[in-house]
């Protein structure tokens, strides 16, 4: 059973409708974002689901996951905090920011906090060079920019998220 089709029937159709009917392959990338929405990574089953929808092989879909950096084949933290440390940002202190942030959070770059909420990573230029230090957050099916950062602001945001997640959990319980 195609889980993607079952979970997101309208969205799948809306995505397919963007492309000519004989060009379903174009829908692979948007469908991968859809597949990543809940877990923040592409599970094996999703490869097959997308392959079926787009009429390609699972290998063709996997190749896309492998090539593009915003798709993941492994789970990580619920929020990926991706700090741009590329040259223009580095000229404005991004490397130092990342270093201190990691130190304060108590993990190394590339690692995930023990609560499984945050993975901190260094990434290439995000088109926000004038507002460095900055990071983007990939999670909950979307991406948001956090610009003109200091370590304090970033930590405060992380606390906010923790509190929100905790509240959600309690509400669900």
């Amino acid at each position: 059973m195609n889980q993607l089709l079952r979970n997101y029937p309208e969205e799948v159709q809306r995505i397919l409708a963007k492309y000519p009917a004989d060009r379903k392959r174009s829908a692979i990338m948007p469908l991968l974002y859809l597949a990543q929405r809940k877990e923040n990574y592409v599970a094996r089953q999703a490869l097959n689901d997308i392959a079926e929808i787009c009429e390609v092989s699972s290998t063709d879909v996997a190749s896309i996951v492998g090539f593009y950096t915003l798709y993941y084949d492994q789970p990580a933290g619920r929020y990926r905090m991706q700090v741009c440390t590329d040259m223009p940002c580095a000229l404005r202190g991004a490397e130092k920011f990342l270093h201190e942030l990691c130190e304060r959070v108590g993990i190394k770059e590339g690692e995930t906090t023990p609560d499984g909420l945050f993975t901190i990573e260094a990434v290439k230029c995000l088109a926000a060079c004038h507002r460095a230090p900055m990071f983007q957050v990939q999670g909950d099916g979307g991406i948001a920019f956090h610009e003109n950062q200091t370590v304090e602001i970033a930590l405060a945001w992380m606390d906010e998220v923790r509190a929100r997640v905790k509240a959600e959990k309690e509400a669900a319980a």
Binding site: K18, M29, P30, L32, I64
Partner: peptide
Amino acid sequence: LHTHLGAGAY
């Protein structure tokens, strides 16, 4: 018109 998102590739 439609938007299409890339996924991290310069």
